[in-house]
Design a protein around this nucleic acid. Sequence first.
RNA 1: GGGCUCGUAGCUCAGUUGGUUUAGAGCGCACGCCUGAUAAGCGUGAGGUCGGAAGUUCGAAUCUUCCCGGGCCCA
Length: 950
Amino acid sequence: MSDKKKGYRDTLNLPKTSFSMKANLVQNEPPMRKEWAKQDIYAKIREAGAGSPLYVLHDGPPYANGDIHMGTVINKVLKDFVVRYKTMTGFDAPFVPGWDCHGLPIESKVVTELGEKAREMSKPEIRKLCHKYASKYIRIQSKQFQQLGIFGDFANPYLTFKPQYEAGILEVFAELVGKGLVRKQLKPIHWSVGCETALAEAELEYKDIESPSIYVNFPVAAESVGKLKELGLAEDGDTNVHFMIWTTTPWTLAANLAIAVHPVLEYVSLRYNKDGKKVVSIVGTDRLEAVVAAAGLKEGEYRTGKPIRGQHLEGLRYVHPYIEKNPTDKDAYMVVCAQYVTTEDGTGLVHTAPGHGVEDYMTGQQYDLAIYSPVGDDGCYDETVPEWLRGKKVLEVDQEIIDHLETKGWLVKQEKLMHSYPHCWRSKIPVIFRATEQWFVSVDKEMPEVGKSLRDMALQSVKDVQWIPAWGQKRIEGMLESRPDWCISRQRSWGLPIPVFVNGKGQTLLTKESVLAVSRHIGRKGSDSWFTDSPKEILGDDFSLPEGFTFNDLKKEENIFDVWFESGCSWYSVAQKAGWPVPVDLYLEGSDQHRGWFQLSLLPALGVAGKAPFKAVLTHGFTVDEKGIKQSKSLGNYVNAQEEVGRYGADILRLWVASVNYQEDIRCNDELIGRTQDAYRKIRNTLRFLLGNLYDFDPAKDGVAYSDMFEIDRWAVQQLQKLIVQTGDAYENFVFHRVFSLIYNFSTVQMSNIYMDILKDRLYCDGAPSMSRRSCQTAMQRILDTLVRILAPILVHTAEEAWSAMKFKSQDLDSVHLAEMPRVDDSIDYKAEDQKWDKIMSLRDEVLRGLEGLRQDKTIASNQEATVTIRCAEETAKLLEGFGLEQFVALCIVSEVKLEKDAGETVVIAEKSTHQKCQRCWNYSPTVGADGEHPDICARCAETVRQSSQ
RNA sequence: GGGCUCGUAGCUCAGUUGGUUUAGAGCGCACGCCUGAUAAGCGUGAGGUCGGAAGUUCGAAUCUUCCCGGGCCCA
């Protein structure tokens, strides 16, 4: 490089900025967050928003266990987008993070770590360890959330184990008790043998297991055989007549009390030989083929009779295959009718054990059967079963029962069946259905004042909620329609006690007043006090006990609440108590929460306040791997969120979250997240170019009025207005991936490919204070200031970094996070020139394609070497002349454009320029050599150099 | 097995109430250029027949049915 060239380089206005090209996010983000913390930026934001209309996004509490994962990252980042956008559009948008702190997973972890010691420890002692454990993970997760750049009141989160929160739960509970919705029932529920507790639906994991599948003949009682003859299902001389049932849980046969048939479906007698004897089995007509196959009967080895409807079998009696005497105090061993009997599997006759199945229970209620469950908490048979079964574990006894049936001749067929079956999420053991006494919130009981049940109210109220996406409504309606009563009790230590007292006569004390009294006590002393304090201390000396109760024989029950009940009260314990209007504006969680938190918040809120706790509910999907398969550690496709943050930095992860359509499954792996870096770099470099060329621009002094700006600069401002409108619309509708693609396209196409490339000649080569340069700087300043603010909710660190690198800002604020979202400039008609620009830009495309030809055959290297002749029709020529050929030259970054009017189609002829190259601006110009002082540069450059050196 | 839901270029997304002759964009990729945004920048180009099949229609990625493959929730 010659000295002369170097000399001209120094006469250029090259970009200068402290905003580095390399982001170094992993190093640079933490100090920025430290600075935010030091300034207490969240408090400043709230302060600035005080008095503005509230917008409340109420955080759903993650479980205080383990590190955060990609799901929680997506969830909290989406929430942060919303809160920040709302803040920047003039709302007071508080964000109070919360944690779900009680429950079985924590207790299990603690008890497992304790090992044998746990057996000797008291509940308060175990609870203390659980508290410590939960607190630890709250600290860990809180830190991890803040590392993502989430803003919120992390100093004062809501925690479900805080006494004030617990008191709130009990206040809600008191109200439900007062409305008569809470009652104790013996009912089959999912029971974890491993954990010895009832399980909620949400605590079940479905896994495929192999179960026995057996066909069993239940002998018809002698007294009913005659009836069967009348019905034509048995013949004279028949002795071995049976009802054939099918089951996959042989252990529940001990609790069998009935056989269910469908009233309308048809049943038929099947005659065949078994073990040398003639036998008859009654089976469903539609299941005949399957039963025959199962029994291994070939054509000619059996015959069938005339079919009759199931309703005619009702009331017929049978003998239990291995239990001699009805163990219950109610009627048993008869045929009943039930609508849920299907012909999809089995025999059409359904083994019914009201103590061990939900449908069985319903049938039992209908026919007044006992809710018989001869199984203890530990999953072992009790004393009421035959001796050979007593004390045995029901989950291990299937084969023994099958063998017994085989020996006695009742077994028709045994097979194996693969099916999905619920398992306990903690112990991983198959769950059993077992009738126990549990506390329920009734969803079908009519409430006295409203005259409606919770279910009716819920189905009505969801119509007034905005569901995003809209199908959320259908989904939750389906769940509400089919959900059973809510079992809210658990038999564990780590939770909020259900405040029930029992007197010596076994009478229960549970009234609105008693619950409120307990609530006051626990609000002061925490829920540990339930286990340590006496009923008198808890209720208070002055509590007036109802008749029949005295403090002398009053005992406390030791059930705790389902954790879903606890989190389901957050709208009250958090939102209402903070003074936020309920319903709050938005709940935002994964789509699994339609059944979970959304539904289980809705029910208490309706019971207590008579209205839904949310105005809108937004849900997101789950992360899957690059093939769309769900992620799990065992499949090896699990993405560790902490590692990703450590590798790329929070802004990359946030940008990735913004880039995907969260309403569907979200494909995610390290590579996909890593690719977001490309987009990040492009956006960052766009900001950098803008910043670098505004180092000497003061909008107040140097700004150019819109009407005086160069056309292309006005175009850029028009494009910016479109961006403001479209991103605003996307943000408003929570369509963040549209915000992302709009910004990314704007940065790439409008800015980088077109505008910034075109601008370089003016910015670098024209005089620093020249009108031409100030014109584009005016546009660039606007673009920068706007882009940074639109980006702020997403790229929280990078936007802040750019903001502090800006010399002049639309708002004189230390942090971009205190700034407002840009608004469209009403004085600019940004659509008016669209048609003209479409034509100009497509002409430009044609020129560029023509130049590519010259480059391919090595005639030219850069576009500046070229002279372009456009042969075109009058109309096009007029357009170009009106636009200004000089402007079009700049637009194409060529040295010269000539027009030739012609009637035909537009033809672009590109040639190598015949002029000399200016050593300063690299354009080829006839004026090079004309200036005596600077013979190797063009006239424009010579003039500029002269002026700036004065 | 049931409810809800998804399946457009390698990736991330657009494709309005079915209809502007070759289904769009950006990225990535290939090739080329520049070296005054430089671990940057510019240009050109090649990639999908819309998960599959059948149907409705003058006409379907867009409506219907079935099938295949995912996801969430449940049984």
